[in-house]
């Protein structure tokens, strides 16, 4: 049975390139009206998953439904109901800002007059109105991303899919995008986004999955995930390699911990106190901070450097 309330539903979804598995039989369920995040490092399979949603990647096996429709059989209808902000902006640099929107409006089947009105409205919403006759080339990275979001909204989509919407943007531009995405969510649109910025997911997402190597490591509300896997606070300190054992023995009965190179992190639960832990450790350069999604990610995915 397909749930009509689902914006996206995937069952045992798999993507292979030759023998290489990039998405390994994942299950997803995203209710309508939710902002759902897919987090993970580069090469985790986030983009491949998204691209299967809108038919740019063929599904190797499994089932995938978007807005209650099967991607394999109803791709055209699905595409008319969704808006996509891809990683590469795909803007036409030969055209003006306005022409970029008008050409795309024609692709989505809007009549010329309607297209112009809608384009102007969206340029106003994204605060790009004064640039409408400028070449796309003069726009900053943040402005380009806003234009791409405007483009994705031309067909008034029920679901907006965003692939790393703020990658490469400065903090101000990022804040601006977050704000506009929150507004879109409030207007009742479903959102799916990928990101490798944990704080972005904490701010925006109702629920998220963390992916790594094509698999889903965990799923839930950001706060719940932090509480479940890490706790309330993190106490971290660096030690000399030869002292590592000494410190681990000292803390291991009372606290959950992990070791990253020379750094020891203690996870402080609801009923524990970070300062007590710090006193127990009693070494220099101890830091106590709030637990974050980043800690969940590092704990679950391991912490070696990724090359890609």
């Amino acid at each position: 049975m397909v749930c009509m309330q689902a914006a996206v539903e995937a069952r045992s979804l798999e993507k292979k390139y030759g023998n290489k598995t990039v998405v390994n039989k994942i299950d997803l369920f995203v209710p309508r009206g939710e902002c759902f995040g897919i987090l993970g490092p580069n090469g985790a399979g986030k983009t491949s998953t998204l691209r299967m949603l809108y038919g740019m990647n063929r599904i190797t096996s499994g089932e995938l439904f978007v807005l209650g429709l099967n991607v394999r059989t109803h791709l055209k209808v699905i595409k008319s109901k969704i808006g996509i902000v891809p990683q590469m902006d795909g803007l036409d640099h030969d055209f003006t800002v306005m022409d970029n929107l008008l050409v795309f409006a024609r692709f989505v089947g809007l009549k010329q007059k309607q297209a112009r009105l809608r384009a102007l409205e969206l340029l106003r919403l994204m605060q790009l109105e004064e640039y409408k006759d400028h070449s796309v080339e003069v726009l900053s990275g943040g402005m380009k991303r806003r234009l791409v979001i405007a483009r994705a909204l031309l067909n008034e989509p029920e679901l907006l899919i965003l692939d790393e919407p703020t990658t490469g943007l400065d903090p101000q531009a990022r804040q601006w995008i977050w704000h506009s995405l929150e507004q879109l969510k409030r207007a009742g649109r479903s959102l799916i986004l990928t990101t490798h910025y944990m704080e972005e997911a904490e701010v925006l997402c109702d629920r998220l999955v963390i992916m790594d190597r094509g698999q889903i490591l965990c799923e839930g509300h950001p706060k719940d995930l932090i509480e479940e896997h890490i706790g309330r606070e993190v106490v971290e300190f660096e030690v000399a390699p030869e002292d590592l054992n000494y410190f681990v023995k000292k803390v291991r009965d009372q606290y959950r911990y992990q070791v990253i190179n020379r750094k020891i992190q203690l996870f402080i639960g609801e009923d524990q106190d970070g300062r007590e832990a710090a006193q127990l450790v009693n070494t220099s350069s101890i830091r106590i901070r709030r637990a974050a999604l980043n800690d969940v990610f590092l704990k679950l995915s391991g912490h070696e450097l990724r090359d890609q």
Partner: peptide, 14 residues
């Protein structure tokens, strides 16, 4: 270079 077709394919055009 321009990824023009990728953009077209974001719509219901195949």
């Amino acid at each position: 270079r321009q990824k023009t077709f990728d953009t077209v394919l974001l719509t219901s055009i195949g």
